[in-house]
Simulated assay, not measured.
Amino acid sequence: MEPMLATPATGPAELPRGPEWAFEVKWDGVRALADTTSGRLRMWSRNEREITPAYPELAGLGAVPDAILDGEIVLMADGIPSFTALAERMHVREPRRAEALAAQRPVTFLVFDVLRLDGVDLTGRTYDDRREALAGLALPHQVQLSPVYPDGDELWEVTKGLGLEGVVAKRRSSTYVPGRRSHDWVKAPHRRTRAALVGGWREETNGSGRMGAVLFGARDTDGALRYLGRAGSGLTGKRATELQKLLVPRADSPFDDEVPPIDARGTRWCEPTVVVDTLYLARNPTGRLRQPVVRAVRTDTDADPWEQP
């Protein structure tokens, strides 16, 4: 089952207001569904890949009977979610390595919705009813209920001051619609992020042969791969080495629009199958990302589609 998704807003002015809306923190982590309907805990990413082995410290969720909980896996650093630190945990599947990392820097599962509980389907009930059901749960170690706030403007300022990712507004009367992006949920980030497809890479300028930058894009509604830009920031030695191993070479550019000659020069093209998470300042009128930074390789989600700037 896929989670329900929020419609993006460009800023606080587009956040809904009024008593019919509830407001939550937009957490900077990995979206996950915790599923115990089979009698044991299985955790699923947004793109329906099982991620249970990566987070052994969340095993206590298995005690919640016949349930599907929706939430965000975060790794706190000084009280603030650190996506960079979490990126080191995402792809670990070897049990001993996962246990060691869990002991050193445990994650927290912040639960914000429930689709099923005690064998009862709750997706047709209102947001308020589902939150009431969550409030009655005894949550295990490393699991917390993500709080709800009545004032979106105030939460926007608080989250901005604390360096959190943003705010999500949710209509109190709304049902849960799996796999759909709904206007009943509206998200407004302080920082812009995008999951993009890598279509090529360039070496460091010092002739080392190591990866120094990647070129990435997004598919439009026709399936064409549109160019989003080039980023070198964030490609630390370890991250660049791991990413380079995943790329499958090809002879020509996979992008369906023109890559500027200054970016294409010296590029080694690859099949656009690897997804990276990028943080950026804004998009220019042509759709290119301004000052993009590569944060992580993503296997828990598909690339975001192309949208007009």
Results as ranks from 00 to 15, higher is better:
Trp156Thr: 05
Gly119Met: 10
Asp151Gln: 04
Thr10Ser: 15
Gly79Thr: 10
Arg31Ile: 13
Tyr149Ala: 11
Gly207Glu: 08
Ala59Trp: 05
Phe112Trp: 14
Arg96Ile: 07
Leu75Trp: 03
Ser38Thr: 06
Ala218Cys: 14
Ala133Gln: 04
Gly11Asn: 06
Lys170Ser: 10
Val64Thr: 03
Arg40Asn: 02
Gly199Phe: 00
Asp257Met: 03
Gln104His: 13
Ala103Gly: 07
His91Ser: 12
Asp300Ile: 05
Pro249Asp: 03
Leu235Phe: 04
Glu204Asp: 10
Arg210Ala: 14
Ala13Gln: 14
Asp66His: 05
Thr236Arg: 09
His141Thr: 14
Leu137Thr: 05
Trp306His: 09
Arg46Ser: 10
Asp153Thr: 13
Leu15Trp: 12
Leu279Asn: 10
Thr286Leu: 12
Trp201Ser: 00
Glu24His: 06
His141Ile: 06
Thr286Ala: 13
Arg31Asn: 12
Ile51Tyr: 00
His141Leu: 13
Arg290Phe: 03
Gln104Phe: 13
Asp256Tyr: 02
Arg40Trp: 02
Leu86Ser: 01
Val293Gly: 02
Phe83Thr: 02
Trp156Ile: 10
Ser38Phe: 00
Ala6Trp: 07
Pro65Trp: 07
Glu307Cys: 07
Val275Asn: 06
Gly60Asn: 02
Pro81Thr: 06
Arg171Val: 08
Leu61Tyr: 02
Ser253Gly: 02
Glu132Asn: 10
Pro56His: 02
Arg290Met: 11
Thr278Tyr: 03
Pro260Leu: 05
Ser253Ala: 04
Val294Cys: 11
Thr221Asp: 14
Gln142Arg: 15
Arg93Asp: 04
Asp128Pro: 06
Arg265Gly: 02
Ala87Arg: 09
Gly212Ala: 04
Gly179Met: 07
Glu203Asp: 14
Val274Ile: 12
Val120His: 07
Val74His: 12
Thr7Glu: 12
Arg181Thr: 14
Lys26Ile: 07
Lys26Gly: 02
Leu139Met: 09
Ala224Asp: 14
Glu20Phe: 09
Asp222His: 14
Gly234Thr: 07
Trp21Phe: 13
Ala296Cys: 08
Ala138Glu: 15
Asp129Ala: 15
Lys170Ala: 04
Ala282Asn: 11
Arg172Ala: 05
Glu88Met: 09
Asp66Lys: 07
Leu122Val: 09
Val293Tyr: 13
Arg265Met: 04
Thr7Gly: 09
Thr193Leu: 15
Ala264Ser: 01
Thr108Ser: 13
Lys187Ala: 09
Ala32Asp: 01
Gln308Gly: 11
Ala34Phe: 08
Glu72Gly: 00
Leu134Trp: 14
Glu24Val: 08
